[in-house]
Amino acid sequence: MTISEYFELLFTDYTLGTITLGTAVLGAICGMLGSFAVLRKQSLLGDAISHAALPGIAIAFLITGTKDTNILLLGALISGLIGTFWIRGMTHKTHLKSDTALGLVLSLFFGFGMLLLTFIQKQPNANQAGLDKYLFGQAATLVKSDVILMITVTSICLFVLLLFWKEFKLLLFDADYTKTLGFNTKFIDILITFFIVLAIVLGLQTVGVILMSAMLLAPAAAARQWTNKLSIMIFLAAIFGAFSGVFGTAISASQNNLSTGPVIVLVAAVFVAFSFVFSPSRGLLFRHIRFLKNRRDLELKKTLQFMYGIAKTHENISHPHAIRILNNFHGFTRKTLQKLEHNGWIEISNQQWSLTNKGFVEAENLYNQLLEND
């Protein structure tokens, strides 16, 4: 199946439509909530929570003996919340830094989860097969009820986001000021964290424990490069996440033996790489262009000041043979002279240059600015 054939079948094939809608919704909610994790500098939180959810899945299976998705995800949610509150407790009650607490919870819970999975797989119960899909995800197992659950959670998340928008925004950028206004910052913080955990748990079936943190952070990291406004960042992150889900699913379906979860993450990484290079405000390309422009402006001003110094030491501001001197000035003067002439700051005639009145005033202003800065 080619990608074009995939999109032709998208609205007629039930399975393709369900999987694509599920991955798009998952990408959107992960992008929205991932924006808060990125801006709060809690990028490792997604990784820790996704790994902390693994023992909850295993324990839920051991208790019920069934692979009901809702029950397993409930166990993952409980385990993820426990891991989150452990992290909060260690950072608030001890002298440990947040990265240390995240690393401890990640390794402890994931190790315990792998131990339980190994124990389950050695049991004489044929029903345990397939639990390992939560490690790397398996989007093909998505059914209509899973997608409905994702849409419901996303709708609730949007409602809460709009309801507490002012509080979320204040807490995000100035927690101390939020406290002085009388808001319950602890409740707001727990609310944000809860929805982040919920989004991660929803994505375990599709993307898996290992790659879920990338799904949470990549769309938000890409969106951050394009704007300084929170609302626009959240919107862009949701768009990037949804498109990552759609195109990742399309690429996976068009090729044999390509897991959907890793392909979705790779597509999201392409969005990140593109944003890092081509975003107008922070992109590497435009940053380099601005650097070259600033360097040219600096060379221009240095040359003008150099001319000003020559002009100040003579009665007449016109000096022959100066082009030969200036052409050796840092190796850039020939183009700089052309730019100076283009700006109307100097005049060049018969191998002689002279500062115009406009150039003399400009150079004098630069000289005075330097004196003020010193």
Rank of each mutant, 00 (worst) to 15 (best):
residue 342 H to Y: 08
residue 234 I to M: 15
residue 131 L to Y: 12
residue 31 G to C: 10
residue 142 L to Y: 02
residue 252 S to I: 00
residue 269 A to L: 15
residue 360 F to D: 04
residue 361 V to W: 02
residue 253 A to I: 02
residue 338 Q to G: 12
residue 312 K to N: 12
residue 101 A to L: 02
residue 69 T to L: 14
residue 2 T to E: 10
residue 328 N to F: 04
residue 117 L to C: 04
residue 21 L to F: 13
residue 279 S to L: 05
residue 315 E to N: 12
residue 187 F to A: 14
residue 15 T to P: 00
residue 205 Q to S: 08
residue 50 S to P: 02
residue 13 D to H: 09
residue 324 R to P: 01
residue 269 A to R: 05
residue 62 L to T: 05
residue 138 Q to G: 03
residue 159 F to H: 03
residue 17 G to W: 09
residue 82 I to R: 01
residue 151 I to G: 06
residue 329 F to Q: 10
residue 279 S to V: 02
residue 301 K to S: 10
residue 89 G to W: 07
residue 364 E to W: 03
residue 200 I to T: 14
residue 41 K to M: 06
residue 194 F to T: 13
residue 277 V to D: 00
residue 142 L to A: 06
residue 284 L to F: 13
residue 45 L to Q: 00
residue 245 G to W: 03
residue 252 S to T: 02
residue 228 N to E: 14
residue 135 L to T: 09
residue 282 R to Y: 14
residue 176 D to M: 13
residue 371 L to V: 12
residue 173 F to R: 06
residue 98 S to R: 05
residue 132 D to L: 12
residue 316 N to P: 00
residue 64 T to N: 11
residue 271 F to S: 10
residue 123 Q to L: 15
residue 35 S to D: 02
residue 94 T to I: 02
residue 193 T to W: 04
residue 337 L to T: 02
residue 229 K to E: 13
residue 148 I to K: 13
residue 136 F to A: 12
residue 235 F to H: 13
residue 137 G to Y: 09
residue 316 N to Y: 03
residue 211 L to E: 05
residue 8 E to A: 13
residue 224 R to V: 03
residue 317 I to D: 06
residue 322 A to N: 05
residue 145 S to K: 15
residue 349 S to T: 08
residue 276 F to M: 14
residue 83 G to H: 00
residue 55 P to A: 08
residue 213 S to G: 14
residue 2 T to C: 04
residue 327 N to P: 01
residue 13 D to W: 02
residue 153 V to I: 15
residue 181 L to R: 13
residue 112 F to W: 09
residue 17 G to F: 13
residue 353 W to S: 06
residue 190 I to N: 14
residue 35 S to W: 04
residue 75 G to L: 07
residue 193 T to C: 09
residue 292 L to N: 13
residue 171 L to I: 07
residue 349 S to P: 00
residue 299 E to R: 10
residue 39 L to Q: 11
residue 172 L to V: 09
residue 186 K to F: 12
residue 80 G to H: 09
residue 209 V to F: 01
residue 265 V to A: 11
residue 51 H to Y: 03
residue 198 L to N: 06
residue 262 P to S: 05
residue 355 L to S: 09
residue 144 K to C: 00
residue 234 I to W: 08
residue 146 D to W: 10
residue 286 F to V: 00
residue 95 H to Y: 00
residue 262 P to I: 03
residue 88 R to Q: 14
residue 320 P to S: 08
residue 322 A to G: 00
residue 111 G to E: 08
residue 333 T to C: 07
residue 32 M to W: 07
residue 258 L to G: 01
residue 97 K to S: 10
residue 26 L to E: 05
residue 206 T to A: 15
residue 63 I to L: 14
residue 233 M to E: 14
residue 138 Q to I: 02
residue 34 G to N: 04
residue 370 L to G: 05
residue 4 S to E: 14
residue 17 G to V: 06
residue 120 I to P: 03
residue 57 I to T: 09
residue 343 N to P: 00
residue 138 Q to T: 07
residue 259 S to K: 15
residue 29 I to F: 10
residue 116 L to T: 01
residue 144 K to F: 06
residue 147 V to H: 01
residue 13 D to K: 04
residue 218 A to K: 05
residue 97 K to I: 04
residue 168 F to N: 05
residue 336 T to A: 05
residue 267 V to R: 07
residue 60 A to V: 11
residue 72 L to S: 00
residue 213 S to C: 11
residue 299 E to N: 14
residue 177 Y to L: 15
residue 61 F to N: 09
residue 277 V to L: 14
residue 35 S to R: 00
